[in-house]
């Protein structure tokens, strides 16, 4: 069991973060807590991509006169990092839309609790 985890601490940590986020999204009754969970799985996915780029003993992808160009293995892959800048922007926008919708829900029904919300919707019909 321990051998499985050894050397993959980061992967297991991200898996845990992802599952906690999913749990919060599905099981929590408060809409804001759902948004927290959403943010957590987004962070987990972004960190996972950073992890994909990581190489043991490699350095930042800036040309270093000490390292010859014949050996690109000594540099990390910069592509996932740049792509994740875009993904962070997407995550922030999603967060903004989610909070805007939560505000709209609160204005219409005066509650953020899901059970109460469903009860009030039913009452209205």
């Amino acid at each position: 069991m321990l051998e499985l985890i050894e050397g993959y601490y980061a992967h297991f940590f991200l898996m845990l973060l992802f599952v906690i986020g999913l749990y919060a999204m599905m099981m929590k009754k408060n809409l804001i807590k759902k948004i927290f969970g959403m943010s957590m799985i987004q962070s987990a996915a972004i960190l996972f991509w950073i992890l994909v780029a990581y190489k043991e003993g490699a350095t930042v992808p800036i040309l270093d006169p000490g390292i010859s160009l014949e050996n690109p293995d000594m540099y990390m892959n910069p592509m996932p990092h740049t792509l994740m800048l875009t993904a962070i922007v997407v995550a922030v926008v999603t967060l903004g839309v989610a909070i805007a919708l939560a505000i709209a829900v609160y204005r219409n029904y005066n509650t953020l609790d899901e059970d109460e919300l469903l009860a009030r919707i039913k009452e209205e019909q």
Binding site: M25, L101, A104
Partner: peptide, 10 residues
């Protein structure tokens, strides 16, 4: 609308 859209968003 916002309630359903929020569910869809999640």
């Amino acid at each position: 609308g916002p309630v359903s859209a929020f569910r869809y968003l999640v």
